[in-house]
Design a binder for these strands. Structure first.
Length: 570
DNA sequence: GCCGTTTTCGGCCCGACTGTTTTCAGTCG
C-alpha cells in the first residue's frame, strides 16, 4: 500500500514549492491531492491497474502521471530534482508551530541554521533577533514552538481530549457572559485522535469570555488572545482554541469551527455558485450582503440546498453529493446498540464478576451481553482451561434464570501460529458466540498473518474477528494484514468483523469499516471491557461506525435478543 | 495543478491574530 508514501511526497512537494514562493493554487493542488490519496479506502496501485486514477478527486493528468511513475520506478524525478533545490533544514524548521516557509527560509539563508536543535542553540545565544523580520517576540514564539513540538508526541487520543474538553466547557458555562458553549473541530467530528480542542461560545460580550478563558487554572500558556479568538496550551499539553461569536451567528460559526477544512471549502464553493457567501457569521447574498442564514446549522445547509450533514461525515468524502441527492445514510446511534459482544470477566483478566457485568449492562439498556474471556494459550491474561470454561458455561446458564438481561457465554479465542484456534471444535460448539483474535506473531509477513485469520474464519464456529489489524493508536502499527482478503472471506463465511471500541484500538478504523460496509460485511461494535468504566467506551465505537457511514442494519449488535440469537446460531 | 449548471481558460474559501518593515505579510485553522 503506497498511499501514505505518495501522500507524503505530494505534501513534501507542496512544502518545497511554498518555500520557493510558487503559485499558491498549484501548492494547494498538491495538498488536496495528498489528502485525497491518504483518505482513499483503496490501494492506489489497484486504482492504477484499473486505470481509474483520474477518478480520484484532485488528481489530474499530471499527478496521475507522477503516481504511476512512483509505483513503477519507486521515485518521481520532479520530486528528486526539487529536493536538490532546497536544504533539508528549511523543511525541518517548518514543522515548528508558528514557523512557516518564509521564516524557515530566512533563518536558514541568513543564519545558516542546520536543524531545530541548532536553531534553539543559536536563539539562546542571542544570535537571532536582529535579522530582517525577526525580532524579540518572534524569537520567543519560535522557542516556545520548539518546546511544544518536543513536549507533544503527536496527536491526542479522542477519549482524552473529550475529558479535557468537558473540564474546560463546564468552567466556561459558569461564566455569566457565555450563553452557548460547545465543542467543535475534529473532536465534534469524533476523529480517533485530535490535534487540538476547539470550543465555540456565543456571547454578547466576547471579550469577557476570552479574558476569562485565558485565565483558567489549567492554562499553562497563552498563544494568542484577541477579542473574539484565543488559543492556549493546557497543563497536559493540549492546545485549546476558543472562538466567540454573537448568538445569531451560532450555526454558521459552529459549522465553520467544526470543519473539516475541506468540507467547509466545498460548502463555500457551492455557496459561491449560488451567488452566496458563507463565513463564520452567516450565509449572505453577495450582491446585497443580506444575511439569509446562520442561526443554526440546519438553516445554513438548507440555504445551499443541502440536507443537514452530521458532523462525523464532514470530511468531504462524498457527503455533500449525498446530501444534494437526499442519499445521506441514516447513521447508527448509541441507542441502537442492544448488547455488548466482547467483555472480560474476573474469570480471566477482567475485574468484574458475571453479576456485576449483568447489572452494568442492564443499566445501559442492553438486552444481552457476551462474556468472552481469553482462551487457554493466553496465559498472561489468565486464559481459561477447558475445564474452567465448562464450569462457567454452567454458572452462566444457571444465573440467567434470575437475570433481567441475557448473559451469553463466549470466548476470545487465540488464533494460533498456524491459524487453528486453541480450543477444539468440541469446546467451541458449546459456546453461544466465538470471537477469534490474533495475540501473537505480530511481525509475521503479510501472507502468513492474513492466512491465519482467513483460516480462523473457515472454522464454522467463529462468529467474529476481534481487533482485526492489531494497531494501538500512537503505540503500535497495525500488523501486515491484507484486509481486502479478510473482507472477501468474511463475506463468504458470513463472519462479523469487530469495531473494537477501546479508545486506543478503534480497530477496525473508520476508513476500513466504510470499505467493509461497501462490501456488504456485517460489523460488530464491542467494548473489550475489563473494568466497570469501560462499558462507556461504546460511544467511541459507535463514532467510528458513524464516521464509516454505517447504518443500524450494518451492525450485528443492533439486533434485538431474539434476532441476534437466530443469526448467530449455526 | 485541477476543474467545469460561467467547461479548455480563468478562476481557485474566508477571516482572525501576531509581529513588525506601521500597512500588511505571515501563519493558522
Amino acid at each position: 500500500m503506497k498511499n501514505a508514501e505518495i501522500a507524503e511526497i505530494f505534501n513534501d512537494i507542496a512544502d518545497i514549492l511554498e518555500i520557493e514562493g510558487e503559485n499558491r493554487f498549484r501548492i494547494r493542488a498538491y495538498r488536496i491531492a495528498a489528502q485525497n490519496i491518504e483518505d482513499l479506502n483503496e490501494d492506489v496501485e489497484a486504482v492504477l491497474r484499473k486505470e481509474k486514477l483520474l477518478d480520484i478527486p484532485g488528481i489530474g493528468k499530471d499527478l496521475a502521471g507522477k503516481i504511476e511513475e512512483y509505483v513503477k520506478r519507486g521515485k518521481i524525478k520532479f520530486y528528486e530534482d526539487l529536493k536538490k533545490s532546497v536544504s533539508r533544514p528549511v523543511l525541518e524548521l517548518m514543522t515548528i508551530p508558528g514557523v512557516g516557509p518564509k521564516t524557515a527560509k530566512l533563518l536558514c539563508d541568513r543564519l545558516k541554521v542546520k536543524s531545530i536543535n541548532d536553531l534553539k542553540k543559536k536563539a539562546s545565544q542571542g544570535k537571532i533577533g536582529n535579522i530582517f523580520g525577526v525580532k524579540e517576540k518572534k524569537v520567543e514564539n519560535i522557542l516556545r514552538g520548539i518546546d511544544f513540538l518536543k513536549g507533544s508526541e503527536g496527536r491526542t487520543l479522542l477519549s482524552h481530549a473529550v475529558r479535557v474538553s468537558f473540564e474546560v466547557i463546564s468552567q466556561l458555562k459558569a461564566l455569566a457572559a457565555a450563553k452557548k458553549v460547545v465543542a467543535a473541530g475534529s473532536l465534534r467530528r469524533m476523529k480517533e485522535t485530535v490535534q487540538d480542542i476547539d470550543i465555540l461560545v456565543t456571547s454578547n460580550a466576547p471579550r469577557r469570555v476570552t479574558d476569562a478563558f485565558t485565565k483558567l487554572p489549567e492554562v499553562k500558556e497563552v498563544l494568542a488572545h484577541g477579542p473574539t479568538k484565543s488559543s492556549v496550551i493546557t497543563r497536559d499539553a493540549i492546545q485549546v482554541d476558543l472562538r466567540v461569536v454573537e448568538p445569531p451567528s451560532f450555526g454558521a460559526a459552529l459549522c465553520y469551527f467544526t470543519g473539516s477544512k475541506s468540507h467547509n471549502i466545498s460548502l463555500r464553493k457551492m455557496a459561491k455558485r449560488r451567488g452566496l457567501k458563507i463565513n463564520e457569521y452567516g450565509v449572505f447574498r453577495v450582491k446585497t450582503n443580506k444575511k439569509i442564514a446562520g442561526l443554526d446549522e440546519e438553516g445554513l445547509y438548507k440555504a445551499i440546498d443541502l440536507a443537514y450533514i452530521p458532523p462525523e461525515l464532514r470530511e468531504d468524502k462524498g457527503e455533500i453529493e449525498a446530501a444534494l441527492r437526499g442519499k445521506l445514510p441514516a447513521l447508527i446511534e448509541s441507542k441502537d446498540i442492544k448488547g455488548d459482544l466482547h467483555v472480560h470477566s474476573d474469570a480471566s483478566d477482567g475485574a468484574l464478576s458475571f453479576e456485576e457485568i449483568a447489572r452494568a449492562c442492564l443499566k445501559l439498556g442492553y438486552e444481552y451481553v457476551v462474556i468472552t474471556d481469553h482462551s487457554k494459550s493466553l496465559k498472561i491474561a489468565g486464559g481459561l482451561e477447558q475445564k474452567a470454561l465448562f464450569e462457567n458455561i454452567k454458572k452462566i446458564r444457571k444465573l440467567n434464570k434470575k437475570l433481567k438481561i441475557r448473559l451469553l457465554i463466549g470466548t476470545e479465542a487465540d488464533i494460533l501460529g498456524d491459524g487453528r484456534l486453541d480450543y477444539p471444535d468440541s469446546v467451541l460448539k458449546e459456546l453461544d458466540f466465538v470471537i477469534a483474535a490474533v495475540h501473537s506473531g505480530f511481525k509475521q509477513p503479510k501472507d502468513v498473518i492474513t492466512g491465519r485469520v482467513i483460516k480462523a474464519m473457515d472454522n464454522k464456529y467463529v462468529n467474529m474477528i476481534a481487533h482485526p489489524t492489531g494497531r494501538l493508536i500512537g503505540k503500535r502499527e497495525a500488523y501486515e494484514i491484507d484486509m481486502e482478503k479478510v473482507f472477501k472471506k468474511a463475506k463468504e463465511t458470513n463472519t462479523t468483523i469487530e469495531i473494537n471500541a477501546y479508545p486506543e484500538r478503534l480497530d477496525l478504523d473508520d476508513t476500513s469499516s466504510r470499505r467493509a460496509k461497501e462490501l456488504g460485511i456485517m460489523l460488530g461494535i464491542a467494548t473489550d471491557t475489563h473494568t466497570i468504566n469501560q462499558f462507556h467506551n461504546m460511544i467511541f465505537g459507535v463514532s467510528v461506525a458513524r464516521r464509516a457511514w454505517l447504518e443500524k442494519k450494518n451492525v450485528l449488535n443492533t439486533l434485538d435478543l431474539e434476532r441476534f440469537l437466530k443469526r448467530i446460531r449455526k
